[in-house]
């Protein structure tokens, strides 16, 4: 197992290098640049713009820039943001708590709602609730998030005044958990509902397979309560693939929050990425990409290992 793990790790490193080269080249060769935001300021001249470019090191040949960047990454220096000149690592790490807060809540909502609907669907296949749940989950998956989010804001914040229309906390007020939750609920629901369809579908498929197995019949025959049969036996056995799914969704949530974060003024990683993209803040973009790639690779690896632990049938080759 250690050998397998090491091999996967080695592949991942090569992968990461490949990814950074492609991303770096793509970004720098494309038109536009970070100096553009200053172009229309009063008194701005071409030579001023050139000086600003040079201060970012953008006047050097591309391979030199890449090597510098890569060497920096290896020594823990991720470079500095063009936008606010802070170290990229700080810029990114500052955003992680907000993103985690939102995505973990959203994932929890998705799992609770999705799994419940999935189990319901599996137990009462082709019933009206099954249809309604399937349709509801599919609609949530199919609605453009930004539209859904803005509708939620329009109805619940502007018209009804039940929720704030964005932000993570009431500004200028002292910290309060209730206030934080109040701000969190709408974006987390909007983000979470998108995932419900995936969760309910997987759960449903997985459960259908399990409920027809012999040991479930045996459990029923033993006279175990239906609730214990379902949750204690059937669901536990159906849960294996769901662990993989959770692992696969964590990195998605980091980026999937991108639109939700924009709509709900949530100061997370996704929003950072969009802003940095608009500004052509290459060091931050590269930093976010590397962090995300690491997360994907890491969570894939973790999910594989977890499944192996959960499911004794799997052996490593």
């Amino acid at each position: 197992m250690t050998a397998y793990f090491l091999r996967r790790l080695r592949q991942s490193v090569v992968l990461l290098i490949l990814v950074t080269i492609v991303a770096f080249g793509l970004m720098h060769l494309a038109p536009g640049g970070p100096e553009a935001v200053y172009a229309l300021s009063p008194g701005m001249r071409a030579e001023d713009l050139q000086r600003i470019r040079a201060s970012f090191g953008l006047d050097q040949p591309l391979p030199v820039q890449y090597v510098k960047w890569a060497a920096g990454m290896l020594t823990g220096d991720w470079g500095r943001s063009y936008r606010d000149s802070r170290p990229v690592r700080d810029v990114i790490f500052d955003r992680i708590p907000a993103t985690l807060e939102l995505t973990v809540t959203a994932l929890a909502i998705a799992i609770v709602v999705g799994v419940s609907l999935g189990v319901l669907g599996a137990l009462r296949q082709r019933s009206l609730p099954d249809y309604l749940a399937t349709i509801g989950a599919m609609v949530a998956l199919s609605v453009p998030t930004f539209w859904f989010g803005l509708m939620v804001i329009f109805v619940f914040a502007e018209r009804l005044g039940w929720i704030p229309s964005g932000g993570r906390e009431t500004l200028g007020a002292d910290f309060s958990l209730a206030d934080r939750l109040h701000h969190l609920i709408a974006p987390a629901l909007v983000l979470g509902l998108v995932l419900v369809a995936t969760w309910s579908r997987y759960t449903r498929a997985s459960m259908i397979e399990v409920v027809n197995q012999d040991y479930i019949r045996t459990a029923r025959a033993k006279g175990l309560g239906e609730r214990r049969v379902i949750w204690g036996h059937a669901f536990r056995n159906a849960a294996g693939p769901l662990v993989t799914l959770a692992g696969l969704q964590i990195p998605f949530l980091f980026s999937g929050a991108l639109v939700t974060e924009s709509v709900f003024t949530w100061p997370g990683m996704g929003r950072l990425f969009v802003d940095s993209l608009g500004y052509r803040d290459y060091p931050v973009l590269m930093g976010v990409l590397v962090v995300t790639a690491l997360l994907v690779i890491g969570s894939n690896l973790a999910a594989d290992l977890l499944v192996a632990v959960v499911d004794p049938r799997i052996r490593f080759r």
């Binding site: 990195p251 980026s255 999937g256 991108l258 993209l277």
Partner: peptide, 10 residues
């Protein structure tokens, strides 16, 4: 490795 939306946007 990259979430689709990142690639799309970039």
């Amino acid at each position: 490795c990259f979430p689709t939306v990142f690639l799309l946007l970039v």
